[in-house]
Design a protein around this nucleic acid. Structure first.
Lengths: 351, 351
DNA sequence: TCTACTTGATCGCGCTGCCCG
DNA sequence: ACGGGCAGCGCGATCAAGTAG
């Protein structure tokens, strides 16, 4: 029983020596049920007994077994997180905020990833999490506009960052206000005198990329301008670089880029072509990654507050878990334009 | 029973309608045990019966309940991940690789974070994970050299990225070879003619920062040079910027920086002071973040292969879980010097 | 009759809910 | 007001029992 020899089976190794409720009960000289009461802070235990039990708990280092508890209470206090497997700044930035917010609310996080944002993979991931008894699911950074059969969810509370169509009543969307973000960016350029404003979008299969493009387009049109060229990248600096090389120089005096990393690539491309930033072209990014302020040309950008999105997501999910009606099923958190040195006023061509 | 009214308790909501083994058994007209056999791919079930059970499983959408299974088998096939709560590139870069590697090996990931790398917080995190029945723990990106009482672990298999002293036999360290990384960087500068080589370190309470500094120092001394100035930042671009402003310009013709983001801040600071990169000073970063290649001055850097570290970590952990002896308890994966435009040969002062 | 294969009844994992003293 | 007994959450393990060759 007590052999600590090598080659012990995982079974023995995993649970080896973990004290159980009954051990504490024996140690304290009370019943198992009383220990349970103390551990769960229930009433009707004399302070004296409670103290004794607590002493035994401490002495043995007892912690209640989560699986057993989950089995009987049907609650796990776990939240499932489905993320797309990529190391993009956006998707990862909120991750730890998510965990911390969940922790504060008394929930743990079970993580799973999908390689691509297909209905099939999403449903598979949700099932994986359901089996593990998660009480709600957050889908973060998954690309497209998907449809989810309510049957697949069995009323699982769900919060996502990009819109999903579903019959489920327990569903809330939480995201930065992407449209307003790029609108603000366009507006800033307009106010600085720019009239030919291009857009370098993310992969348009991503909802957030499409929305940023929509914001650009809407604002440009509301301002009565002809939209400048629309380019598309894949979020990577490399794709920003390559897309920028294709930009017709005469067609734009400014460009709104869908994320900072593509903006960096674009700036590099413009520079290689002999253009100066911001003199020859103004560039605005999106995200405000930490290094944006410390580029050779500090980057003007639209800051997303990822930790706010994360915290709000957890809050909304827990509301759904607790059965409260969501007041607003589509929540858009504000972004903030951070003006640095990659944008400048445009006074018109002298030619 | 079937009310789908709002305000259902979490208990009902979470488990609502999930079919159990007994449901499948009834549907298929066999005993629960037979369903269990089929689900677990055990032998000795007639193909005909197996097919029928499988049909019932599909029809009801049955999935075995993980908590119940864990309770009886004492196995969860879950790996616990302890990460430091920060959105630094390094710690997050390997996260999804970790999840994918675990998934491939048939394990899930339970995530928890610590705010700071203290013994107390680590032990708390490990206990949190133990209660959830994880079979092993990976500690990623936690800073210092900590000591862990074996008693706290109860022989929990453990893989970390920075060294921990512990009595536990089931412990393996997996990391990039930090020392070799900065040694290579210094060597490259030396071979290019540099003789006054400074170092901008990360926070030296972090083991990885200390090791990179050690690599720099060792190589400099092995080459018979006097070490250049040693500066310290906190990994952020801002701290790199500020530290670089304090560098005595005459004291160094090159600087090895402990990560790319500080290097970016440093380059910005040097540029503001009228120095050109690499003409007036060569700069080498560490990590090879995606945007490093697309800076205005593409950054020479030491690439870490985060996904290799993640995959190897999972592999080693699973070996430990399976009771195999670790062949090597300290594994250092190679880094690669990526030479770009922020370094140049130095031909000596003409003064 | 004996062996090989296939199936099922019962128990218990660790804990909490209900009910009783 | 306080404490304990008992059942059962959903599953897999053990062992016994059944069927065919």
């Amino acid at each position: 029983m007590n052999d600590s020899a090598v080659g012990a089976s995982p079974k023995e190794a995993a649970k080896q020596a973990l004290p159980r409720l009954a051990d504490v009960a024996a140690h304290a000289g009370v019943s198992a049920k009383t220990v349970s009461r103390v551990v769960n802070n229930e009433a009707n235990v004399r302070p004296q007994v409670r103290a004794q039990v607590l002493r035994s708990v401490a002495a043995l280092g007892y912690r209640p077994n989560a699986a057993a508890r989950a089995l009987v209470t049907q609650r796990t206090h776990q939240i499932g997180l489905i993320a797309t497997a990529s190391s993009l700044y956006g998707p990862t930035a909120g991750l730890f905020s998510l965990e911390q917010a969940a922790w504060k609310a008394g929930y743990g996080l079970t993580l799973t990833t999908v390689r691509e944002a297909s209905e099939a993979q999403l449903e598979e991931a949700i099932h994986y999490l359901m089996v593990r008894g998660v009480e709600g699911v957050i889908v973060s950074g998954v690309a497209g506009a998907l449809h989810l059969e309510a049957s697949a969810l069995t009323d699982m509370p769900l919060v996502t960052t990009s819109p999903i169509t579903t019959e489920s009543a327990k569903y809330v969307l939480v995201d930065s206000d992407q449209v307003a973000g790029t609108r603000t960016a366009v507006r800033h350029l307009y106010d600085s005198g720019h009239r030919r404003i291009a857009h370098l979008a993310g992969p348009l299969s991503w909802d957030s990329a499409a929305q940023r493009r929509d914001g650009w387009l809407q604002e440009v049109e509301d301002l009565g301008l002809n939209p400048g060229p629309l380019l598309e990248g894949d979020w990577s600096p490399k794709s920003g670089y390559e897309a920028a090389l294709t930009l017709d120089r005469a067609a734009a005096t400014a460009i709104v880029v869908a994320n900072d990393h593509m903006a960096m690539g674009a700036i590099r491309a413009f520079t290689e072509q002999g253009m100066r930033i911001p003199n020859d072209i103004s560039v605005i990014g999106f995200d405000d990654v930490p290094e944006a302020a410390y580029q050779m040309v500090p980057l003007t950008t639209v800051r997303q507050n990822f930790s706010s999105v994360a915290e709000r997501s957890v809050r909304e999910l827990i509301h759904l878990i607790e059965g409260r009606e969501a007041e607003d099923t589509s929540i858009h958190l504000p972004t903030e334009l951070i003006v640095r040195a990659s944008t400048a006023p445009y006074f018109g061509s002298l030619a």
